[in-house]
């Protein structure tokens, strides 16, 4: 992993606001994630945690505030005291370094597991096919699916699909990985295999922002835990402490239901 010696944060969100029509989904989010840190975001549904995650790689644009990843402003360029919207191609370039894993996997159904992983390196980075195939094979091995190269997504279980999706994101060698409820669409017995892969990533020093309902994972793997409700960060801190004795009553109410 690329260490940055300036000590600048990997993700720096300041005063993020976001509305869909008249509904204000994010009401001023401040969050800093350091390189190598695993940050878990929890909270009731509709609290804006997925929207916030999607703002980090500009899948959603923000209405006010600033989003910075590895020192680079996301979605805009500042010149003097003016902000300029980035072109689509420039946003695409920023996204190369930010991997994302979706709740519903979103694998490309017309491509095999290995083709799913090779797609972005081949079309975006123009890596040659042979080399891309080799590293894709390595990534599939890493997520424990070395024998599933030529299976189409429809021939894989949910857990296997999600592991391919993680490998696909890793193929672009991202500096940051975003996980949007990666285990919420899985059968209970398949959750473990996906969490194992994520645990491995964390151990290797990957910076991760994980929106999740897996409190066990948060407690065990995360370096920091953020509790969101109604578009605000209600409480944040070391996972063990937040989970064991939450300070805020809304956190207490939420945790009493899920733990």
């Amino acid at each position: 992993m690329t260490d940055n010696e300036h000590g600048r944060p990997m993700v720096e969100a300041v005063g993020i606001h976001k509305s869909f029509g008249h509904v204000e989904v994010l009401r001023g989010i401040d969050l800093i994630v350091q390189p190598g840190e695993v940050a878990c975001v929890i909270g009731p549904s509709g609290s804006g945690k997925s929207t916030f995650l999607r703002c980090i790689n500009h899948l959603e644009s923000i209405d006010s505030g600033t989003m910075t990843v590895d020192g680079e402003l996301i979605g805009y360029r500042r010149r003097g005291d003016k902000l300029y919207e980035l072109r689509e191609s420039e946003v695409a370039r920023q996204r190369r370094d930010i991997g994302m894993v979706f709740q519903r996997f979103n694998l490309f159904p017309h491509k095999t597991a290995i083709e799913n992983i090779m797609e972005a390196p081949c079309t975006v980075r123009r890596t040659n096919k042979k080399q891309a195939r080799e590293s894709a094979r390595g990534l599939l091995d890493r997520v424990g699916l070395g024998n599933r190269c030529d299976n189409y997504p429809s021939q894989l279980s949910g857990g296997q699909q999600q592991r391919v999706a993680i490998a696909r994101a890793l193929a672009m060698e991202p500096r940051l990985m975003l996980f949007d409820e990666p285990t919420s669409a899985l059968d209970p017995e398949l959750v473990g295999e996906v969490l194992d892969v994520m645990r491995g990533l964390a151990r290797d020093g990957m910076t991760m922002v994980v929106v999740t309902h897996e409190m066990g994972f948060a407690r065990e793997v995360a370096d920091s835990l953020v509790f969101m409700d109604e578009g605000r960060i209600v409480e944040a801190g070391v996972p063990r402490e937040v989970l064991a004795n939450p300070k805020h009553e809304r956190t207490q109410a939420f945790l009493s239901k899920v733990l």
Binding site: N57, L59, E88, S89, A92, R93, R95, R96, I98, G99, M100, F102, R104, N106, L107, F108, E119, A120, T123, V124, A165, R168, A169, M172
Partner: peptide, 20 residues
């Protein structure tokens, strides 16, 4: 979700249309 996944991988609009 297909467009989003391709976009998140850094693929352009044209590439997403042609390939995905």
């Amino acid at each position: 979700g297909q467009t989003e996944a391709a976009g998140a991988l850094g693929m352009s609009r044209g590439q997403t249309l042609r390939r995905i």
